[in-house]
Simulated scan of single mutants.
Amino acid sequence: MARRKKGRPIHGWVIVDKPAGIGSTQVVGKVRWAFDAQKAGHAGTLDPDATGVLAVALGEATKTVPFVTDALKAYRFRVAWGAETSTDDASGETVATSEVRPDAAAVEAALPAFRGQIEQIPPQVSAVRVEGERAYDLAREGVEMDLAPRPLWVERLEIIAADADGVELEMVCGKGGYVRSIARDLGRALGTYGHVAWLRRLWSGPFEAEAGISLEELERLARTPELEAHLRPLEMGLADLPALPVTEAAATRLRHGNPAEVLSGAEFGETCWAVRDGQAVAVGTYKAGMLHPSKVFQTG
Results as ranks from 00 to 15, higher is better:
3 R>P: 10
12 G>E: 07
16 V>T: 02
18 K>D: 05
19 P>I: 00
21 G>F: 00
21 G>A: 06
22 I>V: 12
23 G>W: 03
25 T>K: 08
33 W>I: 00
37 A>E: 09
40 A>W: 12
42 H>I: 01
46 L>G: 06
50 A>G: 05
51 T>F: 02
54 L>A: 06
57 A>F: 03
65 V>L: 11
65 V>C: 06
67 F>M: 07
69 T>R: 04
69 T>Y: 01
69 T>V: 08
76 R>F: 00
81 W>A: 12
81 W>Y: 15
86 S>W: 10
87 T>P: 08
89 D>W: 13
92 G>F: 08
95 V>T: 06
96 A>T: 03
98 S>I: 04
99 E>H: 12
105 A>W: 05
106 A>V: 00
110 A>F: 12
110 A>C: 07
115 R>T: 11
119 E>K: 00
119 E>S: 04
121 I>V: 15
121 I>R: 04
121 I>Q: 01
125 V>Q: 01
128 V>L: 03
130 V>Y: 10
130 V>Q: 13
131 E>A: 12
132 G>F: 14
135 A>F: 00
135 A>G: 09
136 Y>R: 14
144 E>V: 14
148 A>L: 10
150 R>L: 05
151 P>G: 03
155 E>R: 06
156 R>E: 14
156 R>T: 08
160 I>L: 15
160 I>F: 12
164 A>S: 08
166 G>E: 04
173 C>G: 06
178 Y>L: 04
183 A>T: 11
184 R>M: 13
186 L>C: 09
186 L>A: 10
187 G>T: 12
197 A>S: 12
197 A>E: 09
201 R>P: 04
202 L>R: 10
203 W>G: 03
204 S>E: 11
205 G>K: 02
206 P>K: 15
206 P>T: 14
209 A>R: 06
214 S>G: 01
216 E>W: 06
217 E>A: 01
223 R>C: 11
227 L>D: 03
229 A>M: 07
236 M>T: 11
237 G>F: 01
239 A>S: 11
240 D>Y: 05
241 L>T: 11
245 P>S: 13
245 P>W: 14
246 V>T: 09
256 H>K: 15
256 H>R: 15
259 P>E: 10
260 A>L: 09
261 E>L: 09
262 V>G: 07
263 L>S: 08
264 S>Y: 05
265 G>M: 07
267 E>M: 02
280 A>C: 05
287 K>H: 06
288 A>N: 14
290 M>S: 10
291 L>N: 03
291 L>E: 02
291 L>Y: 01
293 P>Y: 03
294 S>E: 15
298 Q>C: 08
299 T>Y: 04
